[in-house]
């Protein structure tokens, strides 16, 4: 597994364009994406109880998550979908390791990790501005939230992959996923009614960025942590089951 990752990292480093097209572009997008938040702050002073620097902590969490998505999950999904389309998934299924894990490390874009660095720096800066020195306990809670967040991300990613077994044309779903992820820049409180339910329970954007950010600024309790971890675990289990069903229905493409 580690060997596979090292190989794709080396491959990616060979392409100088990756530095500009993946790394720098992603950081740029993280920055530019702040504009709508800034407009809201400009007119309102705060968004559903989140002040400017608190929103920056959230933005940092978003950048970190988006980096994990862009560096690990998205390239692996796209590569695996290509395997499915060309019928070369056979090679993956034949290898003596768990097929789902192999699919999830099928490709790696190291340059996207620049965005992670950016996110962490942003979080540190914003916390300093807020005058918050995170206690050990809240760091622990935040780490737990981060874990739940990544679990949700991967659960959804695996579900997307499973869907693409059913119809090749559903491969665009990765982009839909990416587009939706963008709304996790906003605290979940801005959404109401159906969308709030959707983004809390079905596509848990709340667990993915709002909760970790809330934990960092000391607004989360152990109950939220428990529910977040539960959501993440449940999504992973469901995704795993779907994967088993999907692989059973895999008909190796003939051409």
């Amino acid at each position: 597994m580690a060997a596979q990752l090292r190989l794709s990292a080396l491959a990616a480093a060979q392409y100088r364009v990756g530095f500009w097209t993946e790394g720098v572009l992603a950081v740029f997008w993280s920055l530019v994406g702040i504009v709508p938040l800034w407009v809201a702050i400009d007119h309102r002073g705060a968004v559903v109880g989140w002040g400017p620097w608190e929103l920056m902590v959230l933005t940092g969490c978003f950048a970190a998550l988006s980096s994990v998505f862009g560096a690990f999950l998205q390239p692996a999904l796209i590569e695996s979908m290509n395997h499915i389309r060309r019928g070369t998934l056979d090679h993956v299924l034949l290898r003596p390791a768990d097929s789902l894990l192999l699919c999830l490390v099928a490709a790696f874009s190291p340059w996207r990790l620049l965005e992670l660095v950016f996110g962490l720096v942003l979080i540190a800066l914003s916390l300093a501005r807020l005058g918050v020195t995170p206690e050990l306990a809240s760091v622990g809670v935040a780490l737990g939230m981060g874990l739940a967040s990544v679990a949700c991300l991967y659960g959804l990613g695996i579900l997307t992959l499973c869907l693409s077994f059913r119809a090749m044309q559903l491969q665009n779903l990765t982009y839909l996923f990416e587009a939706l992820l963008d709304f996790s820049r906003w605290p979940i409180g801005v959404f109401r009614g159906l969308l709030k339910a959707l983004f809390t329970f079905v596509i848990p954007l709340a667990v993915m960025t709002t909760y970790p950010a809330a934990a960092l600024i000391g607004r989360a309790d152990v109950t939220t942590l428990a529910s977040a971890l539960l959501t993440g675990a449940a999504l992973l289990v469901v995704a795993r089951l779907c994967w088993q069903v999907a692989v059973r229905g895999y008909t190796s493409a003939s051409s």
Binding site: Q171, N172, Y175, A179
Partner: peptide, 10 residues
């Protein structure tokens, strides 16, 4: 189908 997913994306 792809077109519809694309519209959903946008």
């Amino acid at each position: 189908v792809a077109l519809f997913v694309w519209i959903l994306t946008s």
